[in-house]
Amino acid sequence: MPIIQYREAIRQALAEELTRDANVVVLGEEVAQFNGAYKVTEGLLERFGPKRIVDTPISEAGFIGLGIGASMLGIRPVIELMFWSFYSVAFDQILNNAANIRYMSGGQIHCPIVIRGPANGGTNVGATHSHTPENVLASHPGVKVVVPCTPYDAKGLLKSAIRDNDPVMYLENTMLYGDRGEVPADDYLIPLGKADVKREGKDLTIVTYGRAAIQSLAAAAVLQQERGISAEVLDLRSIRPLDIDAVLASVRKTHRVLVVEEQRPFCGVGAQLAYMIQSEAFDELDGPVARLTTVDAPSIYSPPVEVEQLPNPQRILKAAVEAMA
């Protein structure tokens, strides 16, 4: 199987869906002539032309709103946010319009739009460019939220997202763009709302997603090697819909849970997970649900300190050991 980068996997998904469906159009800042701020869309303009690959002005509320309007007529826009952090200037379009129009119209309209781009810290760009809004997005019924962490997942989930008839928020990670992995060159789909056991284990379930899943895998290897603790790493992949059954199945096996996420603790995805786990599998738990998040402050610039603010294998290891105590 070909081994390609995460960014290439996303590009493959875009190219395959652009080829399959003439109504798919890619819009965003620097996606065409510049080849993408992170080179995700490199070469697509040359291949598909300016009608399908469209450079936008810096105008997120404008072009996201435009994409939503076009989607009501059956266009399937895939809109790149250079950083998901910029969603805040388009909040009304995404979370009042895309999320609510179906409901407010009594089901007469649907908005098949995908908004994608990186949502992560760790690149020393400070607080304004390091938001992780998956919790904010997922708290709005009407939208779906996907956070892939491997090239294989990135391609299969994006293709499903583009074919989905609901608005899908697809959160990537700049720290993963260069990661390599096996990705089939042909057409395959990964359904939204299906978690993936990235590592099997029997002593502790680490529920995680995004880059935190990659770091949890590194921590799990050390846990096994140095402590003899067998950690299962469950990658949610989708936040909404949420594969809570997979979470509960793992909890029933290990009886201990650590949630690892690149979110602030207050009302983060892990808060919802902890509530659901205690509510639906209380008797299975041998200890309280543990949680490791980004340290609760705006994202710091200072490079070595930002590493300590975010989840990292050392912090995860420590949290896992505490969860086993």
Binding site: A61, G65, I68, M72, L73
Partner: peptide, 19 residues
Amino acid sequence: IVGGQVPLGVGLAYGLKYK
């Protein structure tokens, strides 16, 4: 939301032209 529909209207026009 005041003004919130205006980008949508431009998107409808975009859809017309696209098709």
